[in-house]
Design a protein around this nucleic acid. Structure first.
Lengths: 142, 142
DNA sequence: CTAAAGCTTCCCATCATGGGAAGGTCAACA
DNA sequence: TGTTGACCTTCCCATGATGGGAAGCTTTAG
């Protein structure tokens, strides 16, 4: 199986498969005589695992640890759970931050009549709300 | 006022102030004979505005538009509101995505006893849950 | 044989932010 | 006066996950 078929089978783009190989998240695959990467069923399972972990928002570093645990039959489930709980705490914090932003913005927008006049509580809020010294932990905007 | 005092007064780091100048979000400041940036009260207001907009999760591009509207006394509040609503929709989507991740992960973790044994529903879930073809819109992991 | 599709590597871009180097400036203090 | 330390300047590089695209080679179908 070439990298394109692998991408289709795993849901991970060819670009990303190469990247994961370069950073050592997955081992280097076998190569054809022409240098094409060659994959088997086992690789599909590993990449699907990665894809699902990404879908749950795990970082590639955490996924590396999850893969190690997955392949270690003598792991303790406690280790896995610890990792998952840490990620859960992270998700919760991000949700809290985003929700706080949303609530503030909803409040500002609610009072903005949104017509042709220039008076705008949203701009007023941005111009006058006190700056929280340390600021919220900012999410990347996209 | 030098850039350090400006950073303290506005809550925006000196590094970022220079960056915002370079990308044209704020105009170039006056300079002392030695080339030091010199700021006044008006600049403090503008940078605080930027800081607060960042705290609400607006992108720098959106902030540029907000600044334009802020400085345009003939703006319509409708334009501001449209921008805010767009950002609100964005926030809501990100919250939804993160919440979906959290809920899935909570379900997996709930069934993991987290002791010394290797059996782990979290890893099992990652290894067997079907891959959603297009996947969720992924948040950057941090 | 040729054209298209697929593969390779390599470099660059995103977005907001920060780290750090190399070097100039300014204030205070002995 | 000289020195020290805090502050400023510009410039380059890094982050994290992903994608775009170029230049060039291989494979496959017609």
């Amino acid at each position: 199986m070439n990298i394109g078929a692998m991408a289709a089978a795993s849901g991970v783009s060819a670009k990303m498969i190469r990247h994961y190989e370069k950073i050592g998240l997955v081992g280097a695959s076998a190569r054809s005589t022409a240098g094409y990467r060659q994959y088997g069923e086992r690789d599909v399972h590993a990449l699907r695992f990665i894809r699902r972990a990404r879908d749950l928002g795990f970082s590639l570093e955490q996924i590396g640890q999850l893969l190690s645990l997955w392949q270690d039959t003598r792991r303790s489930s406690a280790e896995v759970k610890r990792l998952a709980e840490a990620h859960l705490a992270d998700l919760d914090e991000r949700i809290r931050n985003l929700t706080a932003m949303r609530d503030t913005l909803v409040t500002l927008a609610r009072d903005c009549c949104g017509d042709e006049r220039p008076d705008c509580p949203i701009l007023d809020g941005l111009a006058s709300t006190p700056v929280h010294p340390d600021g919220p932990k900012r999410e990347p905007s996209r």
